[in-house]
Design a protein around this nucleic acid. Structure first.
Lengths: 343, 343
DNA sequence: GACCGGGATGTTAGCGCTAACAATCGTCCC
DNA sequence: GGGACGATTGTTAGCGCTAACATCCCGGTC
């Protein structure tokens, strides 16, 4: 903050030795103050702190890292952080990491395949991260995680079940079952489903939950339509569904597709919720302003991020607890206006 | 990859010296191979590469960083990466950084104020980042950037004008003017505006562009309504506007507010676009599936991220080019169905 | 045949920090 | 009053790497 005094070359950032010299102590005492070690006289500590401030000294993290062998950095590998889910998880992880005094280094996946996950983890390891969290909600990721986990503590966030790897996920099956049950309870004979794309764990989990709930209730299981998460694909599914007069209830695998579907029904002149009920999944911030406001299933991504990080930090302290822990978070059904009893 | 041979203690990761010993050369030659230096015999190089593979050797980044004084890491400070804009910019920056062989370390801002930006940059500097990109689209950020830039190369991404700091931004005024002009060209007498929250650069830039365009055309400037970017606030503004029969054209400062507004008009029984035209801003992926599909202004966030990083890398090579460069990216008007000539 | 030049490799000296141990000083106890 | 003890501070030795310089060996030169 203050101007650099003459005894330190201006061209060069001050080192611990400079601080020590200015404070009239040895560099080790400076180190002790910096690391909050006991047995430093209060007055000495104050003098050192003054010297640090005067020189604008910053500890050299590389030097510390070299000797302590700790980088204070965690890596996050994520698929498309532009998506609502991954972005939210990343945010939750970052917040939790900061509270635990860790830095976060990110690598986004450009494509989803074994190689790119491995490469991303490798890149992070080159940077000496102490642990890695992977946000990769695709089926193909599940298999590769165990392999990636060799050599570095790793957890999955919102990933599917991989036996060897600890992970935190939202219970997609249960969430889908809740949505389906809600529609059934309203009095609908059965529920149609607009599913997410093949290869996504969330998509298959939701489809399974939907199917299981229909079967449990002994209802017919109509063939699901397949979307790709986008509103566009929901619109296409909606056009198909709107043409079928028997359809009275639809569970969409996410809110964006529900938006497109809503639009298709509107265009087709089929009223939601008067004629047809719709439930989504995600509870994106906009969904309460759809026409009509969308009933949906809320996932608490920030809790997911937080819990993943807790799990990872636990692993860091205790590298190999017996079995890989799997934490499942139950989502919440949010009831709005898009679903009601059949006419 | 192979099992660790006996001559290296299993408990300890191999060092360059281990590789050197196995290959029968000095550690310096190993270093030369790792750094792609010339003057190493092809055969020697191959032998060393084999040894590296056999031991599963990874260079110690801290040691390298200590001596080269380069961390190969760039920091990104961002406000709420859950939002569409910041998330997209972050993604663009990360991709560009990876191509340039840099790591990205992120710090999210919990609150938007001077202190938190400074603290975030400070945290990043403690980690020895070589440069910082700040994504903070608030007015309050503009002032603090110059201060934060002291001591570390820094660029703003999507931030407002700060004289001292180089930055890349999207031309909000021009985008808003395009939207307004589009509605005027359609034949509307004037255009109402639902603005973003006070304190946001994008909000004030868009309001200015809207106002300037109306004035240029000699049209009356109705008092703008104030929202907070959320669909909820757009809905509230929509209720107010729907009650006024004179309103025929509305420019919303973002697509989410336009969504809420669309819903309010629908509820009020006022047809869009038959009775009232609406244009948004952002072109979020969903906006083409609104009811009706939304005409809007598209911002290329990934280009913004890329350009910001280019600017930052430029600064790293040449610490202080004369004036701080400011790059403005012009957005595009996307015409869909939500605006048409007045009845 | 001694000399020179340059490619290939080895040796040495830190980078800035922490851990381990050594030294010093006062105080307390019998 | 002497020695033990604990609080405080200093000294030394690396952590694993790169930069700078030293060394070696070879073919080509005159």
């Amino acid at each position: 903050m203050a101007a650099r005094p003459a005894h330190t070359p201006a061209s060069q950032t001050p080192t611990m030795a400079d601080v020590a010299q200015l404070a009239g102590v040895s560099h080790q005492t400076v180190s002790r103050v910096l690391n909050d070690q006991p047995n430093v006289r209060a007055e000495t500590r104050a003098r050192i702190l003054d010297a640090i401030r005067e020189l604008g000294y910053r500890p050299n993290s590389a030097a510390r890292q070299l000797v302590t062998r700790r980088s204070q950095t965690l890596g996050v590998v994520s698929f498309d952080t532009t998506l609502y889910g991954p972005a939210s998880m990343l945010y939750g992880i970052e917040q939790a990491a900061r509270d635990a005094d860790y830095f976060i280094s990110i690598v986004s996946l450009r494509a989803m395949n074994r190689g790119s996950v491995l490469e991303a983890v490798d890149r992070l390891r080159d940077q000496a991260v102490e642990g890695v969290a992977v946000i990769a909600p695709q089926t193909s990721a599940a298999g590769v995680l165990a392999q990636a986990a060799a050599g570095v503590p790793l957890v999955g966030a919102g990933c599917g079940p991989a036996e060897q790897v600890p992970m935190v996920a939202i219970d997609q099956r249960e969430g889908a079952a809740m949505a389906t049950r809600h529609l059934l309870d309203l009095g609908h004979r059965t529920v149609h489903h607009v599913a997410g794309p093949v290869g996504w764990l969330d998509a298959s989990g939701r489809a399974e939950g939907w199917r299981a709930e229909l079967e449990r209730a002994g209802r017919p299981v109509p063939p699901p339509l397949r979307g790709d998460w986008s509103a566009r694909s929901g619109y296409a599914a909606g056009r198909a569904l709107a043409a079928d007069p028997d359809v009275t209830a639809i569970f969409c695998a996410n809110d964006h597709m529900a938006l497109g579907l809503l639009r298709a029904f509107h265009e087709a002149g089929r009223q939601v919720p008067a004629e047809v009920s719709v439930v989504g999944f995600d509870d994106i911030p906009e969904s309460s302003y759809f026409t009509p406001p969308l009933s949906t299933v809320r996932q608490d991504f920030s809790e997911l991020g937080r819990r993943s990080l807790e799990l990872l930090l636990g692993r860091l302290e205790n590298p190999a607890p017996p079995p890989a822990e799997h934490v499942l978070i139950t989502p919440d059904l949010i009831v709005r206006a898009s679903a009601r009893p059949p006419a």
